[in-house]
Computed example of a mutant assay.
Amino acid sequence: MKEMPTEELSAVNGMSEEDNSVVTEDNSLQKATLLVVDDNHDMRRYIRSLLKNEYKLLEAENGVEAMKIIEKHQVDLIVSDLLMPEMDGLELSKRVKENLATSHIPFLILTAVHSEENEKKCYSIGVDEYLCKPFDADIFKYRIRNILTLRRGYQERLSQPAVLSDISELGLIEESRDKIFMDRAMELMKLHYAEAEYGLDAFVRDMGYSKTLVNQKMQSLAGMPIGQFMKNFRLDMGRQLLEQGKGDANVSEVAYAVGFNDPKYFTKCFKQRFGCLPSSFSHA
């Protein structure tokens, strides 16, 4: 796991001018990594021929091998056969979806067994797609592309102003580990956004998981590190306060009210996020 980005430090002691500027990477230029799990070598080779030009591919013969690969590599989507020795696709999908560290990974089941019961079981666990063999190559590729596009859409919407105040628009599955995680993150920020001393360490402590896991999960679901998530939330709350003030709000007072120690830094970050100065909402 990579070390915490330097911009995360902006959340440790409140938001101040001394904080490092946030540098974002264009993830759209990076190929997604797919894990193909199937005990049939010829099927893996066929799938590889369909996907090798668009994605980075990892392979496993069964669920046991797949779990070892998932522990060592970042995987963006899993394509798995249903019936396999040692650990089948149903058990693999269950373990992936029950583990907070991996529950965000989309899962596509491939099977030669046309069973409505198995299909219901897979969807109840949280599998994203269930496709029967033999399958149309183009439909297979479209479904993978659509799943990954939907995941990127979650991240893009979370990065947009005002969305942080309501994650119901993201379409996360109710009672899923991903939804519970984001609900908890939102709840904590709603409680503590005004406290300048409420930084990254306190947030991670209250989330109840390791810093590595919380950062990994935030990156996967929101497409940003913890510190950026916290900063964006505070900026969104600042904009709400300015809008509610209807011209009477003081920028410095609002900056302090949402946990920024430096009004000038608040103004700089506000301009970066919203494309306008906070003074456009205020007399001061």
Rank of each mutant, 00 (worst) to 15 (best):
Arg273Glu: 09
Leu170Trp: 00
Asn99His: 08
Asn146Met: 13
Glu117Asn: 10
Asp138Thr: 13
Val12Ile: 11
Asp42Ala: 14
Met15Asn: 10
Glu119Gly: 05
Ser10Thr: 12
Val79Met: 06
Ser210Val: 04
Thr102Glu: 08
Ala202Arg: 15
Val12Lys: 12
Ser165Asp: 14
Ala185Thr: 03
Leu58Cys: 11
Ala11Gly: 15
Asp138Trp: 09
Lys2Ile: 13
Asn13Trp: 12
Leu164Ala: 03
Met186Lys: 14
Val96Thr: 05
Asp183Ser: 08
Ala284Ile: 12
Arg184Leu: 13
Asn20Gln: 15
Met189Phe: 02
Gln74Met: 10
Tyr154Thr: 09
Ala60Met: 09
Ala60Pro: 09
Met1Ser: 15
Met182Ile: 15
Leu277Phe: 09
Leu82Gly: 03
Val75Trp: 02
Gly245Met: 07
Leu241Ile: 13
Tyr142Lys: 14
Met218Trp: 00
Val23Ala: 10
Tyr123Gly: 01
Leu221Ala: 04
Lys231Cys: 10
Asn99Ile: 02
Ile47Ser: 03
Val251Lys: 07
Lys120Val: 13
Leu158His: 01
Phe281Trp: 10
Ser28Asn: 13
Ala101Ser: 15
Ser280Ala: 13
Leu158Asp: 00
Glu71Gly: 10
Phe107Leu: 05
Ile47Arg: 00
Asn62Gly: 04
Asp178Gly: 11
Asn118Gln: 12
Val254Cys: 10
Tyr265Thr: 07
Ser49Glu: 10
Lys268Asp: 12
Arg143Val: 04
Gly89Phe: 00
Glu59Thr: 01
Phe107Cys: 06
Glu18Ile: 14
Ala255Asn: 04
Leu82Pro: 05
Ser165Ile: 08
Arg205Cys: 14
His192Thr: 08
Lys72Pro: 04
Met87Val: 02
Asp236Ser: 07
Gln30Asp: 09
Val96Glu: 01
Met1Cys: 14
Met218Gln: 02
Lys120Ile: 14
Ala11Cys: 12
Leu34Arg: 00
Ile144Met: 00
Phe266Trp: 13
Cys122Lys: 04
Ser282His: 07
Gly199Asp: 06
Ile69Asp: 05
Lys141Asn: 12
Tyr46Asp: 01
Glu98Tyr: 13
Glu86Leu: 10
Gly245Ile: 10
Asn232Ile: 00
Arg273Trp: 07
Gln272Phe: 06
Asp136Tyr: 08
Tyr198Cys: 06
Glu98Val: 08
Glu98Cys: 12
Leu235Gly: 00
Leu51Lys: 01
Glu243Arg: 12
Met230Tyr: 03
Leu50Thr: 01
Arg184Gln: 14
Arg239Gly: 03
Asp183Thr: 09
Arg95Met: 08
Pro225Ser: 08
Phe274Thr: 02
Ala257Trp: 05
Leu29Ser: 10
Arg239Pro: 00
Gly171Thr: 09
Asn118Ala: 05
Leu82Thr: 06
Phe203Lys: 07
Thr267Ile: 12
Glu59Met: 09
Val113Phe: 09
Val75Met: 01
Val163Arg: 09
Ile125Gln: 03
Leu90Val: 06
Arg273Thr: 06
Arg151Phe: 05
Lys141Glu: 10
Gln160Pro: 03
Arg145Trp: 10
Gly63Glu: 04
Leu200Trp: 13
Cys276Val: 11
Asp39Tyr: 00
Gly259Cys: 09
Asp39His: 01
Glu25Phe: 11
Gly275Asn: 02
Gly171Ala: 08
Gly63Lys: 00
Leu213Gln: 08
Phe181Ser: 05
